[in-house]
Amino acid sequence: MSTVLLLEQLLNGLQFGVMLFLMAAGLTLIFGVMGLINLAHGSLYMIGAFAAASVAGFTGSFLLALMAALAAAAAAGALIEVTVIRRLYARDHLDQVLATFALILILSEGTRWLFGSFPLYLDVPAWLAGPVRLPGGIDYPRYRLAVIAVGLAVAGGLAWLIAGTRLGIRIRAGEADREMIAALGVDISRLYTLVFALGAALAGLAGALVGAIQSVQVGMGEPVLILAFVVIVIGGIGSIRGAFVGALLVGLTDTAGRVFMPILMQPLVGQQQAATVGSALASVAIYVLMALVLLVRPAGLYGRA
């Protein structure tokens, strides 16, 4: 029983971590290349989820819904970059925080205006529904397994994109010295728009994938956004590898905390309160993890101090 439970929770943690990575990768890329702190990243996640839920509602196709999420989030990202974000690269962090906070207000209320306050639902497609039996006799939801696979595939793809393609070379060059690559004839503002849209698309994909597990509603992006911030701080801001390791660490810590904290709290606060107290303390565990990492390595695990 306990090994099965443990393995199941390990997979849950992995699934959550992989989702966080999709969010954190975009954030850390945008910060690494453009030096921008983007609070509105959670709104792009929300846009992806809403696009997926409405397209799935019209067409009934989950794959079309995923593509719609990617396209809508990328388009929204590009639009935001060209109209607002572009003016913020040379500004200090305060201006960036404020302007992207303003974007959250606009995008959240705009979405509420279009779709209303009631949550939408995105169904898991029939071919991914139901459990699958894993070696060792564990029944695990097929959909969550697929999410882990997609997340790992995207992580692999992203690593290849950064390390092995022309675009990746430009992105890395942009991180290292933006004046120089502009001087070498790379259209820097197009590169920035592209990177921003790429990050947005990843966030939108995460939103759509999670949308089939949770409900799709306004404000769904902000809790994930804050966790993604914790991830990139742990991993080192600007590092994709750090984002991956940090995401898995946070995902596993959060899941383990949610399962074991209520059990640990039971003798202290009694059965009824244990669930609430335990899950809230599990949320605190992540921040304790972050504080510990920063005490040992102030610039994060893979950060350049």
Binding site: I237, A280, V284, Y287, V288, A291
Partner: peptide, 29 residues
């Protein structure tokens, strides 16, 4: 704790401590 860092790390740290206190308040029945 937070002022040892600066820039984005400071913003994130203050945000994280804020969330910590938020969840602590949520968990106090």
């Amino acid at each position: 704790l937070s002022l040892r860092s600066s820039g984005v790390y400071f913003i994130m740290l203050t945000l994280a401590f804020g969330q910590m206190c938020f969840y602590f308040a949520v968990s106090s029945p």
